[in-house]
């Protein structure tokens, strides 16, 4: 379990996260929606201890960051490293000695090629495969469905389902609401650094309608099509 209390984050005078409180439990998949700049990625970075923050993040783990698999929106790669070597690096970093990745290569990536030759979707799949091989307990997936082909999107959905069954904690952000409503147990709406209590499956439809209304209302008319 992860418990977040009074979490705030400022960049100078700009408050990006405002006093957030949240409990994340094992075996649950949590979705986070919000406009660009609403604070989703900052929240993820705080949980992963990639940045400093005010407030408290407690967990069942001694050092939470060592149990987190972080999939960034645009995963970073080192130059002149092959896919296989990238996976090896991620495993070694967590003291996992595996190095036969052929069986786990479910996305059929060309692991002997340099990562810089991969397409955007292939890079994302490689980064996802890396954090899965690390055998993490918590998964933070920032836009996991972005830039990935439809077949892989289906596969990613099944992976998330399997992680839920294995009692992992999964956090997902996405700009495509349907990907969240299909995969999440609870969805939180972030708005200018604040967050609501979150809605469960039975309220997803209402949340989507409210979001649509808020985003679209009046704007299309302004285009004077």
């Amino acid at each position: 379990m992860i418990s977040i209390k009074n979490l705030s984050k400022n960049y100078g005078s700009n408050q990006v996260l405002k006093d957030l409180n949240l409990n994340l439990e094992r075996g649950h998949v949590y979705g986070f929606v919000g406009k660009n700049g609403a604070g989703k990625t900052t929240l993820f970075n705080c949980i992963a201890a990639m940045t400093t923050y005010d407030g408290q993040i407690d967990s069942e783990f001694k050092n939470l960051k060592n149990h987190i698999g972080l999939l960034e929106t645009n995963p970073i790669f080192l130059s002149r490293i092959t896919g296989w070597e990238y996976l090896k690096l991620l495993c070694q970093a967590r003291k996992i000695s595996d190095d036969d990745f052929n069986e786990q290569n479910i996305f059929e990536l060309p692991l002997n090629d340099y990562v810089e030759t991969y397409s955007t979707g292939m890079k994302k799949k490689l980064a996802l495969m890396g954090i899965l091989l690390q055998k993490n307990e918590v998964f933070i997936l920032d836009e996991p469905f972005n830039g990935v082909d439809i077949q892989s999107n289906i596969l990613i959905g099944s992976i998330i389902e399997e992680l839920r069954k294995k009692k992992k904690i999964v956090l997902i952000s996405s700009h495509i609401f349907s990907t969240l409503s299909k995969n999440c147990d609870k969805i939180f709406l972030l708005n200018e650094g604040s967050m609501d209590k979150g809605v469960t499956e039975d309220q997803f439809e209402a949340l989507e309608s409210a979001l649509k209304k808020d985003i679209v209302e009046g704007k299309i008319d302004r285009l004077k099509l």
Binding site: L78, S79, I81, T82, E85, Y86, K88, Q92, D99, Y114
Partner: peptide, 22 residues
């Protein structure tokens, strides 16, 4: 070139493998 340059450091992929290839 996109052709992978073999390196003696594949089992320890980081600074040395990148440096060697460069």
């Amino acid at each position: 070139s996109t052709k992978t340059i073999p390196s003696p450091f594949s089992k320890r992929p980081f600074e040395n493998i990148i440096g060697f290839r460069k």
